[in-house]
């Protein structure tokens, strides 16, 4: 796994002091009054019901629907089950599926190798309390504030083959959004543009939380700045590193808006999320088939979510 080094690096750091022992916990429980217990139950139960009802139940229903050939019309009891046919169709006779998987992986790779490190690098620079830091932060963060649909449009103004700025300035004739060998890269530039700002901010927040005495101690020992960062700061930031990693993975899995704005995820811009949408949303209404695609996406997401939660869990045990 790619995140192994991060986890191992953490071992070098002394575990934070545990605040409660088992005994203390039991004692506190007994101290709770009846009202307190009701309050706690409500505080958890209300949001839990909302999330279960509106997210988890529909997710379960989607998994069920993936075994049907439902077209989304008519009563639920008339739905026919077709077993795993949708899944075999997805894999065997649906041409966009394989490209979509490749593009999602490519997307993940590009964000992971280029955009995320660049965002982290900028955060480290901006952590230096420079003059004008607020301006830099704002400039980098601005794309995050805009909706992705808007971003797709903004870049279209630059990329258009006949009317775009890039071709006009460089006298080139590249069909940025239309050539299926080029367009995925063009879109990833736009996506990276936004992703960098997001990561920069998350990471900056993490850096601000690092106890300055750690760095001061390293500086006293005569360690160089980069050495201090990699040996001291980076390991301490492990939770943030994990978050950044997960955000990157999830963003690349969920990547959708941009390609949808460009050409609805076709012709070189196939992504799983766009295929789900093409089939489920809109007139097409291939609910069963689309749900099978969605289930594949759900399972992959859940794998990453589980890895992530497992990391958090290990964190908490320390």
């Amino acid at each position: 796994m790619s995140d192994l080094p991060l986890i191992q690096a953490d071992r070098a750091v002394p575990p934070p002091a545990t605040t409660t022992s088992t005994g203390g916990r039991r004692r506190r429980l007994r101290l709770l009054s009846r009202t307190d217990r009701v309050v706690i139950t409500l505080m958890v139960l209300v949001p839990l019901l909302l999330v279960t009802g509106f997210v988890w139940l529909p997710a379960a229903a989607t998994v069920l629907l993936s075994g049907t050939d439902w077209d989304g019309i008519g009563p639920l009891n008339e739905i026919d089950f077709v077993g795993a046919r949708n899944y075999s169709d997805v894999v065997n006779i649906y041409p966009p599926f394989v490209p979509a998987i490749q593009h999602n992986l490519l997307w993940l790779g590009a964000l992971f190798v280029v955009a995320t490190p660049f965002g982290m690098f900028l955060a480290v620079l901006l952590d230096k309390e420079l003059r004008g830091s607020r301006f830099y932060q704002t400039a980098l963060y601005l794309p995050v504030v805009l909706s992705l649909a808007l971003i797709g449009f903004v870049w279209q103004l630059l990329y258009s083959r006949d009317q775009g700025l890039i071709n006009a300035v460089f006298g080139s004739n590249i069909d940025w959004y239309g050539d299926s060998n080029v367009n995925i890269w063009a879109v990833m530039v736009a996506s990276g543009w936004r992703h960098v700002g997001y990561i920069m901010l998350l990471y900056l927040a993490g850096l601000k939380g690092v106890d300055p005495s750690l760095r001061e101690a390293a500086a006293v020992d005569g360690a160089s700045e980069s050495r201090t960062f990699f040996r001291v700061v980076f390991p301490v930031l492990r939770p943030i590193n994990v978050i950044v990693l997960v955000v990157t993975v999830i963003e690349s899995l969920r990547a959708f808006d941009l390609v949808w704005v460009v050409n609805k995820g076709r012709n070189g811009l196939e992504l799983i999320s766009a295929l789900v949408t093409q089939n489920v949303v809109g007139e097409a209404s291939r609910i069963g088939f689309g749900s099978a695609l969605a289930t594949i996406m759900l399972v992959v997401s859940l794998v990453f979510i589980t890895i992530y939660l497992a990391t958090v869990m290990r964190e908490n045990r320390q």
């Binding site: 258009s160 083959r161 006949d162 069909d175 940025w176 239309g178 050539d179 299926s180 012709n267």
Partner: peptide
């Protein structure tokens, strides 16, 4: 040529 990147307006 390159019709896949062009809208009908263009």
């Amino acid at each position: 040529p390159d019709s896949l990147g062009r809208t009908w307006q263009e």
